[in-house]
Amino acid sequence: MTGYSGATDQPGEGYRRVQLAISDLALDRGGWRLFEHLSFTAPAGAHVALTGPNGAGKTSLLRAIAGFLRPAAGTIAVDGRAPEDAAPLLHFLGHRDGLKATLDARAHVRFWADVLGGGAVEDVLARVGLGRVTDLPARTLSAGQSRRLALARLIAAPRPLWLLDEPAAALDTAGKALLNTLIDAHCAGGGIVVAAVHEPLGAPTQTVQLG
């Protein structure tokens, strides 16, 4: 709100350099302690792979970093701020793609650019391989295409911290390659990626094991 946005003004300069710091974190879910004493730091450019069995708390950790879930103990700092104050710095890509069945792909991208604060949206759909279905309503897209449309959000509004929950789910081989390209480019530009994964994705710079 106070001009505090994710992207730097100069094109080509990459993202605002931020740091993600988690210290002595504990999370509860439905009265259960998911994990405790979790600490790690991700500097600008880091690609963190979040691994662990089902129910270990990967999604909850991502939601806590996004500010949707309050920690039971410990602190999360995005660029030195509490998650609730750091919303304009981060993207959250959950297992629900956030699509409206009756709206077309282009309307979704424009909406995200407006709501999340992004620039031109012309080539975004082409970059995620949806250039031929820009006018189709979301209900006609396949699961993989829906996921690609959700990925378009990451490009439509540049933000330094990406929180990805099973981002490769439903994606085909080309889609996974595209995802890797996006992640590599993001990290090379100084952004941070924290991705909950079951199968290795790209080349993470660090791995956090839960459970």
């Binding site: 709100m1 500010g67 304009p88 629900r96 793609d97 956030g98 999340l116």
Partner: peptide, 14 residues
């Protein structure tokens, strides 16, 4: 249900 609410919360607007 569809996850749109998450995105609204990440908007710079209150």
């Amino acid at each position: 249900e569809d996850g749109s609410l998450d995105q609204l919360l990440l908007s710079p607007a209150p």
